[in-house]
Computed example of a mutant assay.
Amino acid sequence: MILDRFKLTGQVAVVTGAGRGIGAATAVALAEAGADVLIASRTESQLEEVATRVADAGRRAHVVAADLSAPDAAAALASTAVSEFGRLDLVVNNVGGTYPRPLLESSVEFMEEAFRFNVATAHALTVAAAPALLETGGSVVNISSVMGRVAGRGFAAYGTAKAALAHYTRLAAADLAPRVRVNAISVGSVATSALEIVVGNPELKEKMESATPLRRIGEAADIAATVVFLASRAGGYITGKILEVDGGLQTPNLELGLPDLG
Rank of each mutant, 00 (worst) to 15 (best):
Thr98Gly: 04
Arg20Cys: 04
Ala61Phe: 05
Gly58Asn: 09
Ala65Cys: 07
Ser45Pro: 03
Arg59Leu: 06
Val15Gln: 01
Leu8Glu: 06
Glu105Met: 12
Met111Phe: 07
Asp67Ser: 09
Phe115Lys: 10
Val14Met: 02
Ala73Ser: 09
Glu109Ser: 08
Pro102Ile: 09
Ala40Lys: 03
Leu38Tyr: 06
Glu84Leu: 00
Leu88His: 07
Thr9Gln: 15
Ala81His: 05
Val91Lys: 06
Ala70Ser: 02
Thr43His: 15
Gly21Ala: 11
Lys7Trp: 05
Val95Cys: 01
Val91Cys: 11
Val95Glu: 02
Arg87Ala: 15
Thr98Phe: 02
Leu77Asp: 05
Ala81Phe: 02
Val127Cys: 12
Asn93Glu: 06
Leu104Ala: 10
Glu44Trp: 02
Gly17His: 07
Ala29Pro: 01
Ala35Asp: 04
Val92Pro: 12
Gln46Lys: 14
Glu44Tyr: 03
Gly96Asn: 06
Ala124His: 14
Arg5Gly: 03
Asp67Gln: 10
Ala70Met: 02
Gln46Gly: 11
Asn94Phe: 15
Arg42Gly: 00
Leu103Arg: 03
Val12Tyr: 05
Leu90Trp: 01
Thr16Ser: 14
Leu88Met: 10
Val50His: 02
Ala33Asn: 04
Ser107Tyr: 14
Phe85Ile: 10
Ala57Arg: 09
Leu38Arg: 03
Gly10Ser: 07
Ala128Thr: 04
Glu109Leu: 03
Phe115Ile: 14
Val108Glu: 13
Arg53His: 12
Val64Lys: 00
Arg53Trp: 06
Thr9Phe: 08
Ala18Arg: 06
Ala27Gly: 11
Phe6Pro: 08
Ala57Phe: 10
Asp56Lys: 15
Arg60Lys: 14
Phe115Val: 14
Thr80Gly: 13
Val37Asn: 01
Ala76Gln: 11
Ile39Trp: 01
Val28Asp: 08
Val82Asn: 07
Gly10Phe: 08
Phe117Ile: 15
Ile22Asp: 12
Leu68Arg: 02
Ala27Cys: 12
Gly86His: 07
Lys7Cys: 12
Asp89Lys: 07
Gly21Ser: 09
Thr16Lys: 13
Val54Pro: 12
Met111His: 02
Arg20Lys: 14
Leu30Arg: 07
His62Pro: 04
Arg20Val: 04
Thr98Ser: 13
Gln11Asp: 01
Leu77Ile: 11
Val12Thr: 13
Val108Pro: 01
Ala55Gln: 11
Phe117Met: 10
Tyr99Asp: 08
Val28Pro: 00
Thr26Arg: 10
Ala124Thr: 12
Ala76Gly: 13
Val50Phe: 01
His123Arg: 04
Ala120Gly: 00
Ala29Leu: 05
Thr98Asn: 11
Gln46Leu: 13
Leu125Ala: 15
Thr80Met: 10
Ala24Asp: 13
Leu38His: 05
Lys7Phe: 05
Gly19Tyr: 05
Val28Leu: 10
Glu44Gln: 12
Val91Pro: 09
Arg5His: 07
His62Lys: 13
Phe117Ala: 15
Phe6Gly: 12
Ser69Pro: 00
Asp56Gln: 15
Ala40Val: 04
Pro102Asp: 13
Ala120Lys: 04
Ala128Val: 06
Ser83Tyr: 02
Ala70Asn: 08
Gly97Leu: 11
Phe110Lys: 08
Ala114Gly: 11
Ala78Leu: 09
Glu32Gln: 14
Thr80Ala: 13
Ala55Val: 06
Gln11Lys: 15
Arg59Gln: 14
Val63Tyr: 03
Thr9Ala: 15
Leu38Ile: 12
Ile22Thr: 10
Gly86Asn: 06
